[in-house]
């Protein structure tokens, strides 16, 4: 693939946290480098504390690196303001979380329409689009319920509908199946694949579940805040342990 199809470029990203003023710095990311291309189904995996969720937060602009650059479509997002990154997210990136977050006082369809309302769509247009999105995942019957009245699997599906309501190029999923039973999880994974294969969206997913690696067009293994080779001893051990 040529250079022009790069949608996400992470370049020498370092991040360390300081819990209190005089506490020592805790390094979490230690020079992360990777590229994700258009229409990739990328899976970032690694053990707990490897920094995989943290790098995801950097990619979507919810966190800023201590050092290094992150490009979305050749645009350096590390130089943008909080709000500018927010706008970028609203327009280009759909997000799915392990736990679904909702505005509890709003109905299902209103929650799904929220990303559109935030960027200034007229309520009527946003409503039509939300209903269409809910129909697509056969969830329209829940439109007038409150999200918290639904099961975890149902909520996650609606979360997916919300993630793509603004037709984003990139969908970022942070352990989307982490809290689901296998049947629900399969439904979610099928839908993510549908988004990737049929709708042509770039998917970046963080997971513990290594059985999904087979679905990926690109895998990024992380350990101790760095990207490591999939062939490395530790990763191989991890894969073996999980598969047993």
């Amino acid at each position: 693939m040529d250079e022009s199809t790069k949608v996400i470029t992470v370049k020498d990203v370092y991040k360390s946290y300081q819990l209190s003023k005089n506490a020592p710095l805790i390094p979490v990311l230690n020079g992360v480098n990777f590229e994700i291309h258009k229409r990739d189904f990328a899976i970032i995996y690694g053990s707990s504390g490897s920094g995989k969720s943290t790098i995801l937060h950097h990619v979507v602009g919810l966190e800023v690196p201590s050092k290094g650059k992150i490009f979305i479509d050749d645009k350096d997002i590390t130089v943008l303001s909080d709000e500018e990154r927010g706008i970028l997210r609203a327009k280009k990136i759909g997000m799915v979380y392990q736990v679904c977050y909702w505005i509890k006082s709003l109905l299902v369809w209103e929650n799904v329409a929220m990303p559109l309302l935030i960027i200034g769509y007229p309520p009527k247009v946003a409503k039509d689009k939300a209903f269409y999105a809910l129909e697509q995942i056969s969830m329209e019957k829940y439109s007038y319920k409150y999200p918290v009245q639904l099961s975890g699997g149902e909520q996650q599906r609606i979360g997916l509908a919300r993630a793509i309501i603004n037709d984003p190029e990139i969908v970022i999923a942070d352990e989307p199946t982490g809290n689901l039973d296998t049947v629900s999880a399969k439904g979610i994974m099928d839908y993510l694949q549908f988004m990737n294969k049929r709708q042509g969206r770039t998917i970046v997913m963080v997971t513990h579940n290594l059985s999904y690696l087979a679905l990926a067009s690109r895998t990024i293994a992380m350990k101790d805040g760095k990207v490591v080779s999939a062939e490395s001893q530790e990763i191989q051990n991890m894969i073996k342990q999980r598969q047993i």
Binding site: V60, R89, A90, Y101, I103
Partner: peptide, 13 residues
């Protein structure tokens, strides 16, 4: 959390 969500969805300050 809802404020966090709205910000994550790109809502302006």
């Amino acid at each position: 959390r809802e404020v966090g969500l709205m910000k994550a969805l790109g809502m302006r300050n």
